[in-house]
Design a protein around this nucleic acid. Sequence first.
DNA 1: ATATATTTGTTATGTTATAACATAAATGCC
DNA 2: GGCATTTATGTTATAACATAACAAATATAT
Lengths: 139, 139
Amino acid sequence: MPLTANQQRVLEVLRSAEAPLGAYALLERLSSDGFSAPTQVYRALDVLIRHGLAHRLETLNAYVACRLEACRHGLTAFAICDDCGRIDELVDNALSSCLGNLVERRDFSPGSTTIEIHGTCSECAGALSEPTRHPKVKP
Amino acid sequence: MPLTANQQRVLEVLRSAEAPLGAYALLERLSSDGFSAPTQVYRALDVLIRHGLAHRLETLNAYVACRLEACRHGLTAFAICDDCGRIDELVDNALSSCLGNLVERRDFSPGSTTIEIHGTCSECAGALSEPTRHPKVKP
DNA sequence: ATATATTTGTTATGTTATAACATAAATGCC
DNA sequence: GGCATTTATGTTATAACATAACAAATATAT
């Protein structure tokens, strides 16, 4: 299923970003492409997310391009570095079955699951107390 | 550490609610108590959450009273019924260590973690195709 | 009692997301 | 190709969620 021009442009901006972008940040970067209102961004994001090409990060109200093929086939957890803003996508069978067991015990039928882990990535932890070189994000 | 009158009132309203409440819903229910602006609600919520007496649900932009003592001692996952809105708080060692292992392998130092599972609770699944008796919430 | 902290009330504004509706473009079908 | 149907787009407006800034009041501690 091919993307429209707008969807393509939003995806390209997300892909070229080092950290998640909010809808209004996307809008700004796309204003030169004729984007003039948030609706246009949200509509494209909606499609990208449904196709598994992008993710929404609930704890940041922001969006990233999907960089991990495995996301299509399993539950994705996100490791979010609060120092540099970078996102690591994690797919793990042990985690999935763990959660599966947990909800099964309560007779809960899961639909979609959000897992977001804030913290510090190895790179930033390595750069002990050096000044940060990238935008800080929410705790 | 005792709660102030405002904090107490917000907590009471959360405790008497069957489903999570947004800040503005809280404000409405507290307007008779002299609450007149969102800031007042957010301030009380902030304290309650820091004390572990309430939780914020990121996927709903809403708040619930904590009903599970174990939340103080471990990672809490939330099972959110999209039919009736009710929340189940889940604390599970297997899940915690699973996530711990996962991030350790990536040299990621976790701070706080958000886990929210949307789906259908046993009660609502039991009431097969009957009309819903409680407010629907976001997917 | 008085200096210090914290909490409160108030006004204003910032940030994120959706509604509603008219137009345009793509798609499928005969 | 023509025509109907669906899908995407542009535009304006507004809804929903959250914070900033500051003065006044209340609690706390010595």
